[in-house]
Write a protein that binds this DNA or RNA. Structure first.
Length: 399
RNA sequence: GCGCAGGUGGCAGAGCGGUCAAUUGCAUCAGACUGUAAAUCUGACGCCUUCGGGCUACGGGGGUUCGAAUCCCUCCCUGCGCACCA
């Protein structure tokens, strides 16, 4: 029994982990049998959780499985102020109602990964909402500008003459104060969060509290295979995506990411992953292994059955080039109409100009037959499938 | 507050009176090749079009000019320097 626990602790401290500070301290604490308080902060401004977040959440789950107390911090305070990071982008503060409804979604998504029933959830507006100026002042005194500016993206922005709002510099402080309020023993986060997480230690120290250990998880690259997964790079896979879409997106990652994804996004045991690594090396078609990967991941969010269905569907549409199982259906009268109008009415294209281009690129098919004349008049006599590119389909029913 | 440099398409960044719907890179989309891989190659990439062209765009507003992304005025915004402050 004890051996199993040691094994788990090892996995906890190494798998998909970028850095542990202070490693020896945390390891000792884990072995002491003490129930630790593990903090993870969530920013409720993003519309949904993606696999980048899932890495830390899976790590939190591992802590839970060892009997530790998961503590989620929902950053509703900062969300209400409005996040200044995305320059130009909507700065308007989210209404508390939007935040509330977002949260519901969040918890549903997060609940697929961790055991929400055993998780403490705190909204940091609870303490920041009524924080006085004096207290705020004290908080700002616990850290220097230089310390905050260590963050890489701040440094780069200074170099490139991009602006940094003072409120942005306050973020790490707020985050650190959260650690004080919930008396965190450990804080989790992506490796890009390191400076912020370390700030928690500083703020705790300033509040005469034992300093939390910090565990950063590896960042994963998105579907493009090069940039880290993020909403702004549009290379993310959302936790809430439909099983088919999720499966397909996982299949589109470069082969080189397969093992990393296995480690960071599945619960497949280390020993198993090692074997998979060997298979890859010995020349097995990576497609098969990627299929397995996709199945494992989809299973977490949608269950075994849907994962299997998604695999079949994938084979059907992309390997065999057949039509998908389920296609959005539109009912139309059978009068003839211009192909351009048809495409834009079906919302398969953004504009008629785009439609024209796609047609000239041989991307538009009706029942599998290429339409290459933008002026074609189409009259549909019986049900048909209209297709643009490889991924856009609409089934037309005649009424 | 003063001075200087800037604000261009999703982003970065050219252009500095007509040949600018605007070089180029990235991102995106389509086609070829495939395992929807990745890489690569080809093409497209404001909107509308009867394919002749038309319309709307280079921070906002106004002006000069036959003609402005390009010149002038003004407002807003950003950076840098000085001053203020410490």
């Amino acid at each position: 029994m004890k051996v199993v626990a040691e094994e788990k602790i090892k996995t906890l401290l190494t798998r998909a982990v970028s850095e542990v500070i202070i490693r020896d301290h945390l390891e000792a604490a884990l072995k002491s049998g003490k129930k630790l308080r593990i903090k993870l902060g969530i920013d409720p401004t993003a519309p949904d959780i993606h696999f980048g977040h899932a890495v830390s959440l899976l790590k939190l789950r591992q802590f839970q499985e060892l009997g530790h107390q998961a503590v989620l911090i929902i950053g509703d305070f900062t969300a209400r102020i409005g996040d200044p990071t995305g320059r130009m982008e909507a700065r308007q503060a989210l209404s508390s109602q939007t935040i509330k409804s977002n949260l519901k979604n969040y918890l549903k998504q997060i609940g697929k990964i961790i055991d929400i029933g055993k998780t403490e959830i705190h909204y940091n507006n609870k303490w920041f909402g009524k924080m006085g100026a004096q207290e705020f002042y004290n908080l700002t005194s616990s850290v220097t500008v230089q310390q905050v500016m260590k963050r890489d993206d701040f440094r780069k922005r200074i170099e490139n003459n991009h602006d940094i709002a003072i409120s942005e510099m306050m973020y790490p402080l707020f985050q650190g104060y959260d650690s004080v309020m919930i008396r965190a023993d450990v804080e989790l986060g992506g490796e890009d969060q390191k400076v912020n997480l370390l700030m928690g230690r500083r703020v705790q120290r300033a509040h005469d509290m034992p300093e939390q250990d910090v565990l950063t998880t590896r960042l994963i690259e998105g579907t493009d295979g090069s940039k880290k997964m993020s909403k702004s790079s549009n290379n993310y896979i959302g936790v809430a995506e439909k099983s088919d879409v999720m499966f397909g997106k996982i299949m589109s990652i470069p082969d080189s990411l397969i093992l990393k994804y296995f480690e960071a996004l599945t619960m497949v045991p280390d020993s198993e992953i090692e074997k998979i690594g060997l298979k890859l090396k010995s020349g097995e078609n990576p497609k098969n292994i990627k299929m397995q990967l996709a199945g494992e991941i989809v299973k977490i969010y949608h269950g075994e059955k849907k994962a299997e269905k998604a695999a079949l569907e994938f084979e059907r549409v992309f390997s065999k080039k057949e039509f998908p199982d389920k296609i959005a259906t539109v009912i139309l009268s059978d009068e003839g109409r211009n192909i351009l109008n048809l495409l834009s009415e079906m919302l398969l294209v953004k504009s008629k100009s785009e439609a024209r281009r796609l047609i000239l690129e041989n991307a538009v098919k009706l029942d599998g037959k290429i339409i290459n004349d933008p002026r074609a008049k189409i009259s549909i006599k019986k049900d048909a499938i209209l297709q643009v590119g490889k991924k856009r389909f609409v089934k037309i029913k005649i009424k």
